[in-house]
Amino acid sequence: MILELREIEKSFGEKKVLQGVSFYAESGKAFGLLGRNGAGKTTSIRILMDVFKADKGEVLIDGKPINHSALKIGYLPEERGLYPKKKIIDQLVYFAELNGMSSKQAVSSVDNWLSRLGMTEYRNKRLDTLSKGNQQKIQLITAIAHDPQIVILDEPFSGLDPVNARMLKSVVKNIISRDRIVLFSSHQMNYIEEFCDRIAIIDEGKVVLHGDLRDIKRAYVRDKLSVRAERTDIIRAAMPEMCSDGERGELIVRLPSPGDKKEVMEKLLSLCDIDEIKVYEPSLNDIFVEYTDKTSKEDSNEAI
C-alpha cells in the first residue's frame, strides 16, 4: 500500500500553511516527517486524517483518492491528553469503538495491549493516578488498539525513560513488520535515523527534501574522512590545513578531492595507530539543520 499526498495546499485566513506539499510512504516501511515547529507537519497530518479538507491537492491510497470510512488510521498526537478522571479501560474501549471496533473486539484488543505493555494492573484505575510515562503508554494504545493500516506517531519517544523507549521501539518494529504504514514525526533525529527508510523535510509549508535516507546521505560529496585515533595530534601536525573537529570527538580530514581517498587513508595509517577510519556521512541532524536553518544557509552562501 502506498499513501501519497499530492500538491496539498492549505491556508488559514491570510496565512498559507501548506504550499504544495507532496510526499509518499510505503507499507512495511517507516516514514519520517520532519520540520521545525510551525512548519506544517500537524496540518499535513490533519488533512491526511480528514480533520479538515485541503484547499488544493489530494490524498491518495495506491493512486486512488483516500476513503476514510474504509481505512483505519491510528494517531498518537504530539499534544497528549485523554480523560484524566475516567477509568483507563473505559476510555481505551471508547476510542477503539469510535475507530470502528465492536465493543467485544475493543475490550479484548485493549486488554491484549495492556498486558503487552505491562499495564494490566492499571486497567481499572483513573488515568490521572498514573505516572507521565505510563500515561504515554495508555495514549499509545489508543493509536494502535484498533489495528490501523496507517499509524501516525507524533513525537512518540518524548517523555519516555530508556526502558519504556525500548519497549516502544519493539512495538513500532512489530507494527512495521506487519506491513503497516508508519509515519513518524519527531525532532529526535536519532530515532528517525534508526527507524525510517524514507524522510520528508517540510519547511514553511514546502517539502524541501524528500527521499530515501541512505540515498540522501550518499548524495553528499564524499570528500571527508572521519578518523578515530589515540594520537590525533600527530595527524593534525602532519596535515594541519586538512583537519577539523567533528561533533562526537572524531577528527574530520577533508580530502583535496573524493578521488584522493585511498591515498590519504594510507597516509593516515602510516602516521599513527588508527582505531577507525571511514568516509564521513552527514548525520540526519546535520541535514535537517542545513535545510531548515536560515541563518546557517545564509552563512554557507556567504562562504561560497
Binding site: 490533519r46 486524517m49 480533520v51 488510521i73 494517531y75 498526537p77 499534544e79 497528549r80 491528553g81 485523554l82 480523560y83 484524566p84 476510542f95 469510535l98 475507530n99 495514549q139 489508543t142
Partner: peptide
C-alpha cells in the same frame, strides 16, 4: 474540558 485536556486531539481524528 475535552479541549483543555487535549483529549480533543484524539477525538477529532477518531470521530
Amino acid at each position: 474540558t475535552e479541549k483543555s485536556s487535549r483529549a480533543m486531539e484524539l477525538l477529532i481524528t477518531s470521530a
